[in-house]
C-alpha cells in the first residue's frame, strides 16, 4: 500500500510537471482559454500560435459562426474589465478594439476585430514571452 502510494505520487508529480511546461500560459486571462485546443478542429476557424524571437502571438479567426463569435467577444469583454488601456476604432462594417494588460512587468495586447459584413471575428493576444510565464 505504501509502495503504491509512493508510485502514485511520483506519477502525479511527473504529470503535473509536464502539464506545467507545455506552454508558457498564464491561466487567468479569459481570451487565452480560446487557445486551449478546444476549438482547433472546428470548421470555419483558423488558429495560429507562434513563439519566435521572444514574441508570443496567438490569433483566432472565425467566419460565419455566430455562437463561437459570441464566445470570443465574451472572453474579450471579460479581460477588458482588467485592462489598463482601451482603444476602439469603428469604420463602416469594421470595428477594432484594443486593450492592454500588464503582467510580469510586460504589456499584453489583446485585439478584437469584427467585420459584420463578412461575419468574421478575429481575436489575437500578443506580447513578449516573459509576459506569459
Amino acid at each position: 500500500m505504501r509502495l503504491f502510494s509512493i508510485m502514485l505520487l511520483l506519477f502525479a508529480s511527473i504529470a503535473a510537471a509536464h502539464a506545467e511546461s507545455l506552454e508558457p500560459v498564464s491561466d487567468n486571462l479569459a481570451s487565452e482559454q480560446l487557445f486551449s485546443g478546444k476549438y482547433n478542429k472546428e470548421k470555419g476557424v483558423t488558429i495560429t500560435i507562434s513563439i519566435r524571437d521572444g514574441k508570443y502571438n496567438r490569433t483566432m479567426t472565425v467566419t460565419k459562426n455566430p455562437a463561437l463569435a459570441k464566445i470570443m467577444t465574451d472572453a474579450f469583454n471579460a479581460d477588458r474589465k482588467r485592462a489598463s488601456a482601451f482603444n476602439q476604432y469603428i469604420s463602416g462594417n469594421d470595428e477594432w478594439t484594443n486593450i492592454e494588460i500588464t503582467r510580469n512587468g510586460e504589456i499584453i495586447r489583446i485585439g478584437l476585430t469584427e467585420n459584420k459584413g463578412k461575419e468574421e471575428v478575429m481575436l489575437f493576444i500578443n506580447g513578449s514571452e516573459k509576459a506569459f510565464k
Binding site: N40, E42, T46, T48, I49, I51, D53, T59
Partner: peptide, 24 residues
C-alpha cells in the same frame, strides 16, 4: 521557435503552416 496552425479543422504543417502564421 514554436509554430502551431489549424485551419478549418485541419492541422497545417510545413509551408502551409508558415504561410498562415505569417498572414495572421
Amino acid at each position: 521557435a514554436v509554430y502551431i496552425a489549424y485551419s478549418n479543422g485541419v492541422e497545417l504543417t510545413g509551408a502551409q503552416m508558415m504561410a498562415q502564421i505569417e498572414r495572421d
